[in-house]
Design a protein around this nucleic acid. Sequence first.
DNA 1: GCCGATCCATACCCGTCGGGTATCGCTGCC
DNA 2: GGCAGCGATACCCGACGGGTATGGATCGGC
Lengths: 305, 305
Amino acid sequence: MRYFVAVAEELHFGRAAQRLGIAQPPLSRAITRFERRLGVALLERTSRRVSLTEAGSVLLAEGRAILGAMAAAERRTRRAATSRPSLVLATKAGACGDLLAELLDAYAAEPGAVAVDLLLCESQPQRELHDGQADVALLHQPFDSTAGLDTEILNTEGQIAILPSAHPLASRSRVRMADVDALPDLPPARWPHPDGGYPDGPGPEVHNQTQLFQLIALGRTTVVMPESSSANLIDGLTAVPVLDAPAVTTVIAWPPHSRSRALADLVRTATALAESSVDDSGPLRTDERGDGQPALAKVGSVSAE
Amino acid sequence: MRYFVAVAEELHFGRAAQRLGIAQPPLSRAITRFERRLGVALLERTSRRVSLTEAGSVLLAEGRAILGAMAAAERRTRRAATSRPSLVLATKAGACGDLLAELLDAYAAEPGAVAVDLLLCESQPQRELHDGQADVALLHQPFDSTAGLDTEILNTEGQIAILPSAHPLASRSRVRMADVDALPDLPPARWPHPDGGYPDGPGPEVHNQTQLFQLIALGRTTVVMPESSSANLIDGLTAVPVLDAPAVTTVIAWPPHSRSRALADLVRTATALAESSVDDSGPLRTDERGDGQPALAKVGSVSAE
DNA sequence: GCCGATCCATACCCGTCGGGTATCGCTGCC
DNA sequence: GGCAGCGATACCCGACGGGTATGGATCGGC
């Protein structure tokens, strides 16, 4: 399977073999045997060109997921065996500072809490979740994909534009997406794709928040981001609410097969925290939750596997 | 990996070997090699008893998922290769009749629509999704687990109690959960667990809707279920709205790695249909759904173990 | 239009792994 | 203490995974 994914990605037996650290002929045979065992043609090969069949491209998508799951399983198993009990929480560096601090404090106060290690990624924290480097993550929809993960919503917030303080728009009390998009002097920054490449465009290439803020302060770009990320603005930057930007939802996410008690506690703590802050700000009453919870729990356990 | 999961589930090398169709000694060696390659002890074995280590139970959960994913990958690949392009849609038999009919009609009218085969399961349609028998499913939260699936919400409905027409409660215009729970003469029916066992309790054992309705008509049990499932009530049954039962959300769900054009079209059709019928039927706005639904999903999935 | 480069497939050889049977060693239980 | 049950070990065999050498087809360049 590893072999097939390598060939399907490279579309070249020689390069795939090199990537796998084996010679080309064994790879060729392995793929042939694999196809014969499945009874399905996965690759169309001429002596000059390799391409995927319909079935092959289906299997490529599935195979990538399987390989990721296997790597994840191995990492998690090894961690469960060697280290002290702990949870690894992944999130984007610089995002949701307050929420994270509150969550860690509240969870540490729980009975039976285990150590929580932080994994502050530059981007794509969900990737760490999929490949087993992390047990749980804070993600921001719609930016991060929650495909294949279990999630609980923690909160929803608006977005703000970060502008150089000297910029005309910075004095406005609020702006619209159209205002920000229509700034030829401040083209949007370009973040790397998961594969490491950058999209085309006039803006500067950035890969972390420090770079970004410095470039904004220098009048080279601007960005629209969740409110909470502006907690620690450096001098020379001004945040202006963007009225019609899509709302950003912070969710706590974990892989669907987790059965760990510690993870369940952390998730429960996080959702309780989120609900209590809703209580502060709105009319949700406790007894409504009290009515709803048992009924739901009952129904839930009927569907429990 | 298959071997390890078998042993971990049986906690007995002999039975596991039998289940796998091999002899016991090769299995023993395979597990030993597997542990050595991982560098992790997965099983504690005395000559009389086998038990899982912490790492072993982590790997069991992950391994089950991986094996399921592999079986699914194989099925989907084979289907992509041999049959005409088609989609398999799984749902519970008897549920969401109207919605399903509308969806099939609307999708069939799309340009580029492929054949949609139906898989009407007795329960657990999400299982067919995980193991590759189906490409897409209609699920009902919080009954069905959407763990590891991508979903879009289609609609939300209340629940009704199905009662024998002769029962005193059947003449009420509405009831509460407490009314239904407090009926010693109509104990709730017991559905089989995924493993085939039944929970304890006084109610009759059932495994499909026909049985259930007949037992209700005979005055042996009752059930609380989504409104739309009552479209085709047999004689002798009466449906009464249950005011405080948790709302049931119908979602369309698919495995997160699908990249098929046909599936994307079907999902788009379904969500478009859902939004247009929401517009028709009242003031429920999209952002309210976004706020309200997750609370239900949350409690349901936390209680699912 | 032919030659050479490229690239996948085949042929052949070797070591390890997965399968089997026979048997040993340990542990409860009667 | 004997016996039954169960996992581990010993030993053997065929198949698979790895390597090198080479063939056959196709595309590009002169």
